[in-house]
Amino acid sequence: MASPTSQRKSHVFRVTGLPRDLPDEDLQASLQRALHDTISDEERSQIKTEITIVPSCYDPDRERAALVQFRGGVPQFLSELTLNPLGDWQVEMEDSDISFDCHFFGFTQLYLPDGKEPVVADIIAIAGLDGHAYGSWQGRGNLGRMWLRDFLSKDLPRRRTMIYGYNSKLSSHGVDTILDYGRELMEEIKKIRNTKELQQRPLFFIAHSFGGIILAHCLVRAIQTMDEDHPAITSLHRATYSMIFFGIPHKGLVVEDIQQMLTGDRNHPREKLLQQISSRSDLLVHQLADFKNLIRDRK
Score class of each variant (00 low, 15 high):
Met243Lys: 12
Pro249Cys: 00
Val74Asn: 04
Gly115His: 08
Leu179Thr: 15
Thr82Cys: 01
Trp147Ser: 10
His103Ser: 15
Gln138Tyr: 04
Ser242Gln: 15
His208Tyr: 03
Asp297Thr: 15
Val254Cys: 07
Asp155His: 08
Arg20His: 11
Phe105Val: 12
Leu86Val: 09
Ile213Gln: 01
Arg14His: 08
Leu110Arg: 05
Glu42Ser: 11
Ile248Glu: 09
His132Gln: 11
Leu18Gln: 07
Asn167Tyr: 01
Glu25Phe: 01
Leu148Ala: 06
Pro85Glu: 00
Lys48Asp: 13
Pro118Thr: 15
Phe13Lys: 03
Thr108Tyr: 02
Gly131Tyr: 00
Gly144Val: 14
Ala133Pro: 01
Thr108Arg: 01
Leu35Ser: 06
Gly165Asn: 07
His237Asn: 11
Arg280Phe: 04
His230Gln: 07
His103Gly: 07
Trp147Gln: 04
Leu143Thr: 09
Asp101Cys: 09
Asn167Ile: 02
Tyr111Met: 02
Glu271Lys: 06
Pro75Ile: 13
Ser99Lys: 03
Ile206Asn: 08
Ala216Met: 14
Ser10Val: 10
Asp130Gly: 05
Asp59Met: 07
Leu152Ile: 14
Leu170Asp: 04
Asn167Leu: 04
Lys299Arg: 09
Phe245Ala: 13
Val15Ala: 05
Arg221Lys: 12
Leu27Met: 15
Ser168Gln: 14
Met1Ile: 11
Phe13Ser: 05
Gly17Gln: 07
Leu112Ala: 08
Arg14Phe: 00
Asp88Arg: 08
Ala216Ile: 08
Asp101Leu: 03
Glu43Ser: 04
Leu86Cys: 01
Gly115Glu: 14
Gln7Met: 13
Gly115Asn: 10
Gly17Ala: 10
Ser209Thr: 04
Leu81Ala: 07
Lys116Asp: 11
Glu92Trp: 15
Pro269Tyr: 09
Ala121Leu: 11
Met146Ala: 05
Pro75Leu: 08
Leu170Lys: 03
Gln138Phe: 05
Glu50Met: 07
Ile233Tyr: 04
Asp176Met: 05
Val54His: 09
His132Ile: 12
Lys251Arg: 06
Asn84Asp: 13
Thr263Cys: 09
Ala66Tyr: 02
Leu283Pro: 01
Asp61Thr: 11
Val68Thr: 05
Phe151Ile: 14
Phe245Thr: 11
Gln76Phe: 06
Glu50Tyr: 03
Arg20Asn: 09
